[in-house]
Amino acid sequence: MPADYSKSDIPEDFVAAKKESSGNLSAGQSQSKRRFISKTVLTCLSIISTAEIARRVSFKAVKLEIENSSLNDIAKGDSILENRAYVVMTDNEKQTMITSLVDKYNKPGK
């Protein structure tokens, strides 16, 4: 009589318990993987969003700084120019200046 492999000597309740526990194990594993991935994605998202916020805030600060620095330059220039007097050159001064320009060009370093 051929052996009946559909039946085994292992008790059915043991097999059922084993199946249940192995089923639980794979579900737990896949759950932890899912949790890990979701955590990774969330961490990435939070890092990216924090970096973007920081970038925007710093860009705004830099823009303000550019504008303020330029305005400071202009204001300083205004105050400096207000104190600049212009004076008429006498004929003698003009002649001396032209002579010195020509001389200096022709004999540099002297």
């Binding site: 007097a85 004076v87 003009k94 320009l101």
Partner: peptide, 23 residues
């Protein structure tokens, strides 16, 4: 060209009333 006596700028210097800033 300030070195050229015939240039416009030289003629201005020779003939006009010239001012300098903060001489």
């Amino acid at each position: 060209n300030l070195l050229d006596p015939e240039s416009e700028v030289r003629k201005v210097l020779e003939r006009k009333r010239v001012f300098r800033l903060k001489a």
